[in-house]
Computed example of a mutant assay.
Amino acid sequence: MAPLQDDHDAVVERFQPTSGRVTGWLTVVLTGVLVVAGVAYVDEGFPLWVVAASLLLGVLAWAAMLRPALWATHEHLVMRNLGETVHIRLAAVEEMAVRQVLAVRAADKRFVSTVVGRTWRKALTSRHRPGGLADSAALAPTEGMHYADFVENRLYDLVDKARSRDGIRAGSEEQLALPDAVRREPAWLPLGLIGACLVLLAVSLFL
């Protein structure tokens, strides 16, 4: 019998992107059309460097706008970005805020996710909460709440629960000394594709 999945790795909340998807898909489609057209008409003088540049732009749009994701497990906040996937232990989160992007401080380092964010104007007027959820009822999601507000509230709730479960106080020495506070995994697929496109572009410029 196959072992059951560790409950600590089970996804408890998957957050939806607040922007960038439409632009990302449009860019991928348009660059895809250029690549197909270039391959079809390469014998008629269509520049190879345009094909390579379009392919590179399409890969960058996918990696930067469509690939990023944000979710939480029982133990970690997971940020999948262009070049890496970062696993941040919830109890190790020192500070967190959703502005134009989500910024999280843990293990004395700052990590950013572009998946969730506010508009520039909304970011200026939003209320920053440097501590935990002292009044969770006041911060509970309500009908009509902006999605970025819901994400911030939900993340604070998950962080507070993780701290309570581990007996950790925010800003304490125990929090700073937590083992495996952050784990980073390189995103080899997008990095490899971007590298290959750069090589293809360089070669096409000399042909």
Rank of each mutant, 00 (worst) to 15 (best):
A2G: 13
L4E: 10
V11R: 08
V12G: 06
F15C: 03
S19T: 05
V22L: 15
G24N: 01
W25D: 07
L26W: 04
V29R: 04
L30W: 10
T31W: 00
T31G: 14
V35E: 08
V35H: 10
V39H: 10
Y41A: 11
L48G: 14
L48E: 12
V50P: 04
A53L: 06
L57A: 13
V59N: 07
A61C: 07
A63D: 06
M65P: 10
M65Y: 05
L66G: 08
P68L: 12
L70V: 01
W71T: 03
H74D: 14
V78I: 04
M79E: 11
L82M: 13
G83Y: 13
T85P: 12
V86K: 07
H87D: 08
I88E: 08
I88C: 05
E94A: 08
V101L: 05
V101W: 02
L102P: 01
V104M: 05
K109A: 14
F111K: 10
V112F: 02
S113P: 02
T114Q: 14
V115T: 15
G117Q: 00
W120E: 13
R121Q: 11
K122Y: 04
A123L: 00
L124H: 06
H128S: 12
P130R: 03
G132Q: 05
L133F: 01
D135C: 01
D135S: 05
A140K: 02
H146N: 13
D149P: 00
F150H: 11
V151A: 04
E152N: 05
Y156K: 15
D160R: 00
D160G: 02
A162N: 06
R165M: 03
D166K: 02
G167N: 01
A170L: 11
A170C: 12
S172G: 02
Q175D: 07
L176R: 14
L176W: 09
D180I: 00
P186R: 14
W188D: 07
P190H: 04
G192R: 01
G192M: 02
G192Q: 02
I194H: 02
I194E: 08
I194R: 10
A196W: 01
L198C: 05
L198S: 06
L200N: 08
L201V: 08
F206H: 08
F206T: 15
